[in-house]
């Protein structure tokens, strides 16, 4: 696909001008304002704001809960994608459609309903309580809602690759005397790793910034169950704008690093997937 000459079709100047204008007004200038505000701090103040004990505890919690949720989603996503692609069973289309619910359901609704399900008197929480398992208001609750919000990513990255996978490749492996396990390990697994990693990174990135669902189910206690996004909001509510901007810059740096990784992984997936 090649572009056409700028004289053959109209609207290049107007379209590009408006695109750049709107992108700058809505995204780039506001983001620059955040960096500018953080830069108004001296280096020592920046470190004090962005690297305090409380901030470090918040990054650590955000990072590990998002990573744990993404890892759980790789396991769940591989099972669900495999089943949806390879087997016929009742309500398969419905199950397939339900996978997208976390993308469409407002995060506040997810937080509300998960907090109520897993509260000590909730539908699920009442059975966990006697076992000594506390989910609501703990870091496990955070992992749980992040599993929900990130659930579609691994399924939707692995599904097309599994569907495109050459059945002949598996058959050939079988003809050549590979048993099921060898065929799985040598043929399937290498193909599934790139999309699974992409799904992991997407779910991880989503979880790192998540706010709406988490505040319902977490007790949001500083040092204990306070994620980075919640810390930014508390700084804002104290009118400590520059400190909030400093923490946001750290969070943005993590997100953009992940974005670069996701782009690399997607190229890798495309190369593997053919």
């Amino acid at each position: 696909m090649t572009g056409v000459s700028r004289r053959a079709l109209p609207g290049f100047g107007l379209g590009l001008g408006y695109t750049v204008f709107y992108l700058s007004a809505v995204v780039l200038i506001p983001l620059a304002a955040c960096a500018w505000k953080a830069a108004s701090l001296s280096p020592a103040e920046f470190v004090a704001a962005a690297w305090s004990d409380r901030a470090r505890a918040a990054y650590t919690l955000s990072l590990w809960t998002a990573a744990a949720a993404a890892a759980i989603n790789v396991a769940l996503g591989l099972v669900v994608a495999w089943t949806l692609v390879r087997y016929e069973f009742p309500f398969r289309r419905l199950v397939d459609a339900l996978v997208d619910v976390p993308l469409a359901l407002p995060t506040a609704v997810a937080g509300l309903v998960y907090a109520s399900l897993y509260a000590p008197n909730g539908w699920v929480g009442q059975y966990l309580e006697p076992l000594g398992i506390k989910v609501a208001y703990t870091e496990y609750g955070i992992v749980l809602v992040l599993v929900f919000t990130g659930f579609p990513f691994v399924v939707r990255t692995v599904q097309p690759v599994l569907a495109d996978l050459d059945a002949e490749m598996e058959e050939a492996a079988a003809v050549l005397g590979a048993d099921r396990w060898q065929a799985f390990r040598r043929v399937l697994l290498p193909t599934l790793i790139p999309p699974a990693l992409t799904g992991f990174a997407l779910a991880f990135a989503r979880g790192l910034g998540e706010y709406g669902s988490v505040i319902f189910i977490s007790s949001n206690m500083p040092y204990r169950t306070e994620i980075a996004a919640v810390l930014i909001v508390s700084r804002l509510e104290e009118y400590a704008y520059a400190e909030a901007a400093a923490i946001a810059v750290v969070l943005l740096a993590m997100s953009f690093a992940l974005l670069a990784v996701i782009n690399l992984l997607e190229r890798w997936t495309q190369r593997h997937g053919g």
């Binding site: 695109t19 750049v20 992108l23 995204v27 780039l28 200038i29 506001p30 983001l31 304002a33 955040c34 505000k37 990135a205 790192l208 910034g209 998540e210 706010y211 709406g212 980075a228 996004a229 930014i232 909001v233 804002l236 704008y241 909030a244 901007a245 946001a248 969070l251 943005l252 997100s255 953009f256 992940l258 974005l259 782009n263």
Partner: peptide, 24 residues
């Protein structure tokens, strides 16, 4: 670069998205 920048907001935490407008 333009194509990449269009996707940028998806990688920004919603809280940070709100914060930038508060600062501005």
């Amino acid at each position: 670069i333009l194509t990449t920048l269009i996707d940028l907001p998806f990688s920004v935490s919603p809280v940070v998205a709100g914060l930038v407008f508060v600062l501005l």
